[in-house]
């Protein structure tokens, strides 16, 4: 470390948990943040300020007004300029730490590009907003033996779990598949900014243990916390399950299924999203979306207006998103309102 770095990181490297050696490792490390929303913007901020050497920020979305309540790094001007989240976040963070190499990837993560986007990395941080992205991340991380930190939050509650492939449980060891029932999203159930920030902070703490060369200090548990009620809980995640479909049997279902949830242009300004193997509960979805926009539903389809877009959803999970020609926009809307 040079004199400027010694001064800059003095309050961190003095910590016995990090030390000068840990800080040196951190300065030479590369982290990848998946998603620049409520979790990802906090993760990226903490990592860049802590001195991570290189960071990749991946997000397919643009900054919207409803993001500002909980998504650090964004300003009202970003909404007006319709800035891509990854680019806006990178711009802010370069001012916070000009020595950090920051890459913005304004991209939709798919089975085709996931490995190239996520690796190489010393640690990947999960700031995604849907289950499918997390299982895809898990597939890539397990396959390439890259540590990652699962984290998610909705309402006042959140969870996190460090995954060290081959050493600890992976996501599929604990949850062999994504829930088929409709689960709450931040759009339908809200998100307290204190909850998302708390979860992102705890994820970064685990990531720092890896990046600073202290993997023995990892919490090898799936931790859940409700920041409003103060209730916390955790379950053991210290060992891989030999029967796990992903890390036990090497069946990378999400990475290999190139058609899952794939989006294709259909018509002049519509994108079709292929069924992802999960049936949709249309009446339940109609009830959840009713307060957010105009909903028309019959047993065969549900139409939901979220101007300038319109989602038509089918019981088999297929969807048509009208009002865009961009598959990333269509998949983003689907993840937000349907789950994944």
């Amino acid at each position: 470390m040079n004199a400027a770095q010694r001064e800059r990181y003095s309050r961190q490297s003095i910590l016995p948990e990090i030390g000068v050696a840990g800080q040196r490792r951190l300065l030479a490390s590369r982290a990848v943040v998946v998603g620049c929303g409520a979790l990802g913007t906090v993760q990226a901020t903490l990592l860049v300020r802590a001195g991570v050497g290189e960071i990749v920020l991946i997000d397919r979305d643009y900054v919207e007004t409803s993001n500002l309540q909980r998504q650090w790094l964004f300003e009202e001007a970003d909404v007006e300029r319709a800035m891509p989240k990854a680019a806006a976040a990178a711009e802010r963070l370069r001012k916070a730490n000009s020595s950090c190499r920051i890459h913005a990837e304004v991209k939709d993560m798919t089975p085709q590009n996931a490995a190239a986007l996520l690796t190489p990395a010393d640690a990947i941080l999960d700031g995604a907003d849907n289950f499918a992205a997390r299982y895809l991340l898990n597939d890539v991380a397990v396959k390439t033996k890259t540590p990652w930190i699962y984290g998610a939050a909705v309402g006042t509650r959140g969870s996190l779990m460090p995954v060290v492939p081959g050493e600890t449980a992976c996501l599929s060891c604990i949850f062999p598949q994504a829930p088929r029932s409709r689960q709450p999203t931040c759009e339908t159930s809200g998100a307290l900014n204190a909850a998302t920030t708390a979860v992102a902070s705890m994820q970064v703490c685990e990531a720092l243990k890896i990046l600073c060369g202290r993997p023995e200090a990892l919490r090898r548990r799936l931790v859940t916390t409700d920041i409003w009620s103060g209730e916390t809980g955790s379950v053991d995640a210290s060992r891989p399950d030999p029967d796990c479909p992903t890390c036990g049997r090497g069946d990378f279902q999400y990475l290999n299924d190139l058609s899952r949830g794939s989006a294709s242009l259909c018509g002049r300004d519509s994108v079709q999203i292929a069924a992802g193997g999960r049936a949709l509960d249309l009446p339940g979805l109609a009830a959840a979306l009713a307060s957010l926009g105009k909903v028309q539903a019959n047993p065969h389809a549900l139409r939901f207006a979220c101007p300038p877009h319109e989602l038509t959803l089918f019981p088999d999970g297929r969807a048509i998103v009208k009002g865009t020609r961009d598959p990333a926009v269509a998949r983003s809307l689907y993840a937000r309102y349907v789950g994944s």
Binding site: G35, G37, V235
Partner: peptide, 10 residues
């Protein structure tokens, strides 16, 4: 017994 929920948002 400890039970934790699978959270998906973010």
């Amino acid at each position: 017994i400890e039970i934790v929920h699978f959270v998906g948002g973010g």
